[in-house]
Design a binder for these strands. Sequence first.
DNA 1: CAATTGACTGACCATGTGGTCAACATTAAA
DNA 2: TTTAATGTTGACCACATGGTCAGTCAATTG
Lengths: 211, 211
Amino acid sequence: MSVVNTVKKSGNIRVKSQQKILIAASTEFVLQGFKGATVQSIADRADLPKANILYYFKNKENIYHAVLEHTLQMWDEGIGDISPEDGPKVAIKKFIDAKVRMSFKHPESSKIYAMEIIQGAQHLKDFARTYQRKWVREKAKLFQQWIDNGEMLNVDPVHLIFLIWSSTQHYADFETQILTIMNRADYEEEDVEEVIVFLTDIILRGCGLIK
Amino acid sequence: MSVVNTVKKSGNIRVKSQQKILIAASTEFVLQGFKGATVQSIADRADLPKANILYYFKNKENIYHAVLEHTLQMWDEGIGDISPEDGPKVAIKKFIDAKVRMSFKHPESSKIYAMEIIQGAQHLKDFARTYQRKWVREKAKLFQQWIDNGEMLNVDPVHLIFLIWSSTQHYADFETQILTIMNRADYEEEDVEEVIVFLTDIILRGCGLIK
DNA sequence: CAATTGACTGACCATGTGGTCAACATTAAA
DNA sequence: TTTAATGTTGACCACATGGTCAGTCAATTG
């Protein structure tokens, strides 16, 4: 009993501190990049002494790894599975819906991910080579079957996936630009639905799945 | 005459060195980010002594400014103007064509631009607030007129512009990911045309401009 | 109680980096 | 040839930053 309590207690403190650090680190990495984010700046943002940061994470690289891991988890959860039973229309609808919601809910994850890829994906090469490539091939095959069955127009499935990825993530990654152009301070609830409707509408029609 | 020659000659050396530096700097900034790119690494890549870099550009910040300026020029040139006479179909076609070609021709510019925006656009706020916002409003109005005239379906013009921006730039910014997924080493000539056909086809149909 | 363990931190240091500068080299002008 | 301007560079420095470490404190255990 006392053992359990002990473990749980220190575990909580540990987890809580680590979480606080990871959140602070995410923000710093987005704002300053990997090199630009200093351990001190992360510490300040997390309101902890620098040495405490290095107590929980051996070094800066390790913090970054942890942040990236969290990001990949987001990616994985937010992917919105495309299943054969749905048929192309519902499948694409679900896919866009999931991706847009994730973009608006976790913009920092999307941003960190984007920066990694832009800079050459040094830490994510394996992820793309194995997991992602497999996922894309699998889903592309599914789309191809629908096309062969005449259930949708003959559009390249792989490029279709890229199109959905890019157009949905855009609202997270280019948040600043979009808000500035629309002369707004922040996104609002309605924006999410509006974007979903817009993208779903235009892409479904583009695939010959409307009218 | 001799004056002209002198100016031209020293000008040439000056311009040539500066160009070499800017190219090297672009690569470094993409690969390492602003903080991560060191003056030394830029010097190495340009094959010049560090002090020579600082002779042509007062400091690192200045190099970055110059690179950004060049990037904006790219953006401006590659924008492919949307003119009223063309009508929606040709206008969108031209727009996509120009944007895709620029993405494949100057991926570094696109990448640097993207990283700036993602990190909060500290150096580009003004550009977006004035120039870009005006451009988008202007073009959106044009699309709206076409919509009101029944020349194209009622899709939100601003989001349409975002869609075209995001889907076209994606091939530059996420180059690494795309190539890895497609299991390829580099883009080839045909890719550009393929992407143009794909995006034009699906977006035009999405706007009710095909069939 | 004493002992052990884990959490935490100020002080410190080695290194890397941006930027300066004095000296030197090359070219153009007088 | 002399003078001046422009280009070029090695050597140097102040400073920020990642990371270590010795030691303190608090809680748990035997």
